[in-house]
Design a protein around this nucleic acid. Structure first.
Lengths: 150, 150
DNA sequence: GAGCAATACTTGACTAATCACGTATTATTG
DNA sequence: CAATAATACGTGATTAGTCAAGTATTGCTC
């Protein structure tokens, strides 16, 4: 099945995971140093901004950012407390907890996006194949964006 | 500096991080279900196997797998306990703790590598640019492998 | 429309990682 | 060669995530 000890796929994917971990760490440090949010929180805010104006369910956000719903519940709590996010229950379905970005959240997200862009500009990422990555995202079950309010 | 709301680099990198998280999770599940090791542990074993036969310092392993030395210390402990790894101090430098793969560790690593390869074969990763990724690894401070015994 | 199944969320218990700090050892420098 | 700096490791405290299980609520089926 596999020729011992040499698999291009494997090498490439392991390199990808390694690179991802390192970039994520770098972004995380910059973001928390300058704006006090983690990279994970950045991704949450971004997912919510794509679900405007009606907000998104926990499960949708979870899928969008590749976390469990449980993690989303926990991660959103502090963001609500500092006024970046609001949550209210869906009017027709009492199970759903719709989270939405506040103006303050949107503003912070704007800053954060600038920081992220600046950090990424210092990286030699020219040759990344957006097509392949997007295909992978699709294949791995990532929806294009957090669903609006299905 | 940046045209509002559209940055190819950013899109590509965010997709990369997303894809990486999902792949890692998938590998982690398969590995722990079948061989009882996490993906993180898999990476540790792999790093050690590349540092044979003399083993590697905690700091070198940490750099190789993109973790902190502290995390490596903690992660190696259970692996020692179940006999996959041995640690002994360096003869000429009492600060150094040299970790090495045992035969059992090497065997398990072999199994794990097969599992990883199988999982990756189910993924459409043909188009990944090994060159670009390797360049990124270099740029981000990843050494080619855990140093032998410098 | 009563009852069962599915969905959305939350909580409890746990794990793996981080940072900040401390200690032991070796290297450097005056 | 004494004093200082740098290196390697480990530990305490904290955090962010996981899974498993529980509680509401809604949808489905007969």
């Amino acid at each position: 099945m596999h020729i011992m000890g040499s698999n291009r796929n494997e090498d490439a994917v392991l390199a990808l995971l390694d690179v991802a971990a390192r970039i994520e760490r770098r972004l995380d440090h910059h973001l928390s140093a300058t704006r006090g949010v983690s990279f994970s929180e950045y991704r949450l805010l971004k997912a919510l901004s794509e679900a405007r104006p009606h907000g998104a369910m926990r499960v949708a956000v979870a899928e969008a950012v590749a976390l469990t719903p449980s993690a989303v519940t926990r991660a959103l709590r502090p963001l609500e407390k500092i006024g970046l996010v609001t949550t209210e229950r869906h009017e027709r379905d009492a199970r759903r907890s719709m989270a939405a970005l506040t103006p303050a959240g949107a503003e912070l997200l704007g800053d954060a996006e600038r920081i992220v862009a600046d950090v990424l500009d210092t990286l030699p990422v020219k040759g990344l194949p957006v097509e392949t990555l997007a295909g992978l995202q699709r294949e791995l079950g990532a929806p294009r964006t957090a669903r609006r309010h299905p």
